[in-house]
Write a protein that binds this DNA or RNA. Structure first.
Length: 198
DNA sequence: TGTAGGATGCCCT
DNA sequence: GGGCATCCTACAC
């Protein structure tokens, strides 16, 4: 059978690992989005883990189950997209069915379809193209249409990329009103990478 | 049915 | 560094 997509998605089993571990494992992987306009892809260089039941910063804290958070209660590897102000943010659902955890993709390093990404972002510099959770979704063309999809098949999927030489960890960003949860070192990034959000 | 508040980004000082 | 765009969700009446 002809391989229509330019990249080979990871196996579903890739997502079957503890959320914090998955957040690190995603670093260096390639995030691909195929649309009619073309294919855009970038290496994941920054992630954040959100662990529903015990994590005040998570939308699913205390097992809050609504139409928005519903997908986090499903199997690992599903797509959780969410609208923030004027932007769309993308997460990888993790953990077992019934446990609402996810990994937020905060930054990627442009790899393929750079011209298309620049066009979507209104002609910004390369360094500013995908260095933030709202920026990368716009550059790659990820929208609420992707909610509930699986990251192991087109049009939105993850491919094994490179193994980061060094990984850093620290507190998450933008969750100052989340009590003690804001201190958890659940943000991971590729040490020294120029496309990390800050 | 009304309203308060974001897992952000950009533009202005 | 601070304010605002802008809109959907959650939750209080």
């Amino acid at each position: 059978m002809e391989q229509k997509s330019p990249f080979m998605p990871v196996d579903k089993s890739f997502f079957q690992q503890p959320t914090l571990q998955l957040a690190e494992a995603l670093l260096g992987c390639l995030l691909v989005k195929e649309t009619e306009e073309g294919t855009a892809a970038g290496f994941i260089v920054e992630t954040e883990a959100y662990r529903g039941p015990m994590d005040r910063a998570a939308h699913s804290f205390n097992n809050r189950r609504t139409k928005r958070t519903e997908i986090m209660f499903h199997e690992a590897g599903r797509v959780y997209t969410y609208v923030m102000h004027t932007h769309c943010l993308v997460n990888v659902v993790s953990a077992e069915i019934g446990i609402p955890e996810a990994v937020l993709i905060r930054a990627v390093e442009p790899y393929e379809g750079v011209d298309l990404m620049i066009e979507r972002r209104g002609g910004t510099s390369l360094k500013n193209l995908t260095s933030g959770p709202g920026k990368l979704t716009k550059a790659l063309g990820i929208t609420m249409e992707d909610y509930g999809r699986c990251f192991d098949e087109p049009p939105l999927y993850i491919v094994r990329g490179f193994t980061p030489k060094d990984i850093s960890a620290g507190p998450r960003i933008g969750i100052d009103n989340s009590g003690e949860a804001k201190e958890y070192p659940w943000r991971f990034w590729v040490t020294g990478n120029a496309f990390v959000s800050r």
